[in-house]
Amino acid sequence: MKSVVTTVVTAADAAGRFPTQSDLESVQGSIQRSAARLEAAEKLAAGFDKVVQEAGDACFKKYPYLKQAGEAGENQVKTDKCYRDIAHYLRLINYSLVVGGTGPIDEWGIAGAREVYRALNLPTAAYVEAFSYTRERACAPRDMSPEAAKEFKSLLSYVIESLS
């Protein structure tokens, strides 16, 4: 999985050399910036169920038609699946915060998502609304420190972009 360390090691291995000073410098840079990321991951994990609930509620509030017959949230089973998908994306954001790159979101979230949503006839606008709400709702320093919030919001933006 792509991260600063694995990128450095792959490059060093391709050249057949030991890790150089500059390799170690770039790993150190990533380590120094990791405190904010890990804090965001921890706070997100701590309030996870609530964040998912509020994001899902926001999306059904903006698009009430989704609850009508024949739509993506027509019954409880389908509605639950919408919340499950939101939880899935937020879990991947939690992972990406830990890894320090978008690897988990790219590999497990975005790859093939467009094809799946088209095949299942799901509206991506509803997900966009859910994550936009979460992005607005996250507040520093109430929820997490400003640096952590910045990391969290930039990954939310990344997911929103991929769904737009």
């Binding site: 999985m1 991260s3 360390v5 997100l44 994990a45 992972y95 830990v98």
Partner: peptide, 21 residues
């Protein structure tokens, strides 16, 4: 290839859990 961070991610993903405290 994994590092300490992505190892934690892969094992959390196996149980669909978030990475917590």
């Amino acid at each position: 290839m994994l590092d300490a961070f992505s190892r934690a991610v892969v094992s959390a993903d196996a149980k669909t859990a978030t990475i917590g405290e």
